[in-house]
Every structure is written in C-alpha cells, then in structure tokens.
Amino acid sequence: MNDAHLTNGTTDVELLSFRLADQEYSVDIMSVREIRGWTRATPLPHAPAHVRGVINLRGTVLPVVDLSTRLGMSPVEGDARNVIIVVQVGTQSAGLLVDAVSDILALPRSELQPPPELAADAAHSFIEALTIIDGRMLRVLDLAAVLPDAAAEAA
C-alpha cells in the first residue's frame, strides 16, 4: 500500500503511529525529533497532572507530557517498555510519554478526515484528523494543543 503511494507520487504526509492503552494515535513525523527510552522525570511543583516533569535531553531541560493523562485516560505506568517521543512545535520542544511506538505510515493527505464534533469527549479537541489504516482507526494529534500551556504560548 505504502509503495503504491510512493510510486504514483501522491504521498504527502508521513505519520509516526504509537499506542496509548488500546488506542492508536499518530503525529506528523516532521515534528518528531527523536524517540528515546523511558527515564524518570523530575516532578515539577504545582504542575498540572499531565506534566510528568522534566528530563535531561543531552544537557537541555525537556518537559515531559503524559499523553495518556492529557487525553483523559489513566496515567502511563512508566517502565522500561514505555518511550518518550521528543517533538518540536515552533521553537518549543517537549517529550510525549506513550506506551509504545508502532509504525511509520505514509499516506496522501486526502485520506485524512476531520474528526466529528462530539462535545462530551475531552480528548477530541486534541485530535486534528482521523484516518483508517488496514481497518483500524488512527488518530492524528494536534501537537500544539497537547503541549504544556506555557510551551504552547511560547511557540
């Protein structure tokens, strides 16, 4: 499937997909800087629950967001199987703590569709688009909305 898109030249978006609990999410790969193993984050006083803390990313201080909590689910356990996806939006970097990274997918932008409006769901405002891959629903995250407030403002 991917190959077909590549050869006929209609591919214009690449997504990094990852798992959170039993759901599949993704982010635009252009905003991903690296993926690193889980390290214990230093908690920040008076921080919102979804801000796990800060970690040392080669000498710079990187805030880490527990994506599960941010999307209204139970917190990620935090063990060796979890990973931190380091993303950059504008000039702001942050780490997203997720259960596991699954795949890199290439698909034409036309296959992304806007999510339907459902007011009851807190998580839905973080979702930029939806698509179907091999019969599974894949959610594309709106990174600017997910990052910590200060970070989003600065970016």
Partner: peptide
C-alpha cells in the same frame, strides 16, 4: 544552571534547574 522558563515557564519558588 539550566534555564527552566524557556522549556516550561515560570514555577513559583523555582529559580532554575
């Protein structure tokens, strides 16, 4: 000293990291 403001914003009582 590592600045915290740029990465996260100001935290009361915390100068830096």
């Amino acid at each position: 000293i590592k600045g915290l403001q740029q990465a996260y914003g100001r935290i009361p009582g915390v100068a830096a990291a």
